[in-house]
């Protein structure tokens, strides 16, 4: 690859990272507005989250708890950014390789580990409890999620996300995985796992304010909290995009010269809908206890995912 190619690639990657962050912040703002309507309120302006981040980054004193505390956030943000860049967005894939579905799974675990490091360094018992809960939550939702992922891999006979997206986009909407009955089940299981990844009720156990005073974030303030909000915005985009890529064909509906514009808009609409669905669920359910969440994922969700896996296996053998 020549120098020019590398430069273009780097520019594109930066552009995607920035777009991902902005989209995340914008959606969080719109989400706050929608939730406010559910609450019978007016709600903040839709750009409120940009202001919040800017304010947090401009705060003056910042209390650090040592270099591990500083590094941990960096760890989390870079982990989630890498995840985003490995995902096909509207059918466009920048970093791609065979087997990147597994890679993405591992990358998704990095932020949680980053939090664990940061919270451990802060020494606050609330943060410690929160991190324990976050790790247990990860363990619980990964099981149904991995089973659905395996079902997809068996059906499409590949371990590359790009291939899964391409195979689903051959006939536009009609070939999306979610149109097939076994994958409807799988999509349900994966959506619940997504709820856990996004840390919304009933699975906001790691950050429960009434129980452990917002858990791992308890010692983050000022610039640290600002970075954390950026992380959350990127995570929101990355996790919903993963779902869209797996079940909704990555939002690819058009092919041709300027198709990527249409695909990008469709992708945006899809992740927005997924996010709205998730916050509406959050607005109407209380929070589980951690062992109840674990039971929910390993008993009900895992069984649903397993049924879809067996169903897919039978389809493939035929």
């Amino acid at each position: 690859m020549d120098v020019m190619g590398i430069a273009i690639k780097v520019a594109l990657l930066t552009a995607y990272a920035v777009i991902g962050t902005c989209v995340g912040l914008l959606f969080m703002g719109i989400g706050r507005k929608i939730i406010a309507r559910v609450h019978n309120r007016v709600g903040p302006p839709f750009y409120q989250n940009f202001i919040d981040v800017a304010k947090l980054l401009s705060k003056k004193t910042n209390i650090s708890h040592g270099w591990i505390f500083d590094l941990a956030l960096l760890f989390s943000i870079s982990g989630i950014l890498l995840t985003l860049l490995f995902l096909p967005i509207g059918g466009v894939q920048l970093l791609s390789m065979e087997g990147d579905a597994f890679l993405v799974l591992y990358l998704l675990a990095i932020p949680a580990l980053g939090f664990a490091l940061g919270a451990g360094a802060s020494g606050n018992p609330n943060a410690g409890v929160g991190v324990m809960r976050a790790l247990v939550m990860m363990l619980s939702y990964e099981l149904p999620f991995i089973i659905t992922l395996i079902a997809l891999m068996i059906y499409y006979d590949t371990t590359s996300l790009a291939t899964i997206v391409r195979m689903q986009s051959i006939n536009g909407v009609k070939s999306w995985a979610i149109t097939m009955p076994p994958f409807m089940l799988a999509a349900f299981a994966a959506d619940m796992a997504l709820q856990g990844m996004l840390m919304e009720q009933p699975f906001d156990i790691p950050v429960a304010p009434h129980e452990i005073a917002s858990g791992p974030m308890v010692e983050f303030g000022g610039k640290y909290l600002g970075s954390l909000m950026l992380y959350k915005a990127i995570a929101l985009v990355a996790e919903t995009t993963l779902f869209v890529d797996l079940f909704l064909g990555g939002g690819v509906v058009a092919h041709g010269n300027f198709a990527f514009v249409i695909n990008f808009i469709v992708w945006l609409a899809l992740i927005f809908l997924l996010f709205i669905l998730s916050i509406l669920i959050a607005a109407s359910f209380p929070r589980f206890r951690i062992e109840q969440a674990f039971g929910f994922y390993w008993k009900y969700e895992a069984i649903i995912a397993a049924i879809s896996l067996i169903w897919v296996y039978i389809l493939v053998i035929k």
Binding site: V38, H39, N40, Q201, D204, A208, S284, P286
Partner: peptide, 16 residues
């Protein structure tokens, strides 16, 4: 109480 189990819709309604 509803706030303490994480369903923030109810406090918004009931206090209103």
């Amino acid at each position: 109480y509803a706030g303490s189990i994480g369903i923030y819709t109810i406090p918004q309604w009931s206090l209103g």
